[in-house]
Simulated scan of single mutants.
Amino acid sequence: MPTIIRFSTSRLTIYPNEHGTPHFHLEFMDGDRCSVAIETLEILVGVVTPAKKMAEAMKWAAENQALLLAKWEEITR
C-alpha cells in the first residue's frame, strides 16, 4: 500500500488493485481509519472522531485532487 503523504497524526494511502469509486485511505496513529472519495472528499467507509483531526489531510487532499486521481490510476491498474 503506497503511502502518498504523511501528516502529523495520519497517513494517506492508495491501495493497489482497488476498485469502485476512486478513493484514498486515511489511517491515524490512534487507530481510526476511513476511506474518502477523491472527487467529492466525502467519507465512504469508516468513522473518525473528532472529525477535526482530519482537517490537515482533507485540506491537502482538496488542494491535490488531480494528483490523487492520477495516483489512483497509476496504482490501481
Score class of each variant (00 low, 15 high):
R11W: 06
R33L: 09
W72H: 05
T9A: 13
F7Y: 04
M58K: 13
M54A: 03
V45Q: 13
F7A: 03
T13M: 13
E27T: 09
R11T: 03
P16G: 03
A37T: 02
R6W: 05
V48P: 05
V36S: 01
L26R: 01
M1Y: 12
E63G: 14
V36Q: 00
F24Y: 09
A62K: 12
K71G: 02
L44E: 02
W72Q: 00
G46F: 10
G20L: 10
A57K: 02
E27S: 07
K52I: 07
H23T: 01
H25M: 09
A57I: 03
V48L: 05
F24N: 00
T40L: 06
S8N: 13
W72T: 01
F7R: 03
T13D: 11
E42N: 14
T40F: 09
H19M: 07
S8T: 14
E39Q: 13
Q65H: 07
G20Q: 08
A66C: 12
A70E: 14
Q65G: 03
G46K: 07
T49R: 12
K52Q: 03
T13P: 00
E18V: 06
V36P: 05
Q65L: 08
K59M: 12
K71A: 12
Y15T: 09
I75G: 00
A66W: 13
E42M: 15
P16A: 09
T13S: 12
F7I: 03
M58P: 10
L67E: 04
L69G: 03
A70M: 10
I38E: 02
A70N: 11
H25Y: 11
F7K: 02
I4W: 08
T3N: 08
T49E: 11
E56Q: 15
L41S: 04
K59R: 15
E56F: 11
E39R: 14
H19Y: 13
K52D: 01
L41C: 06
E74I: 05
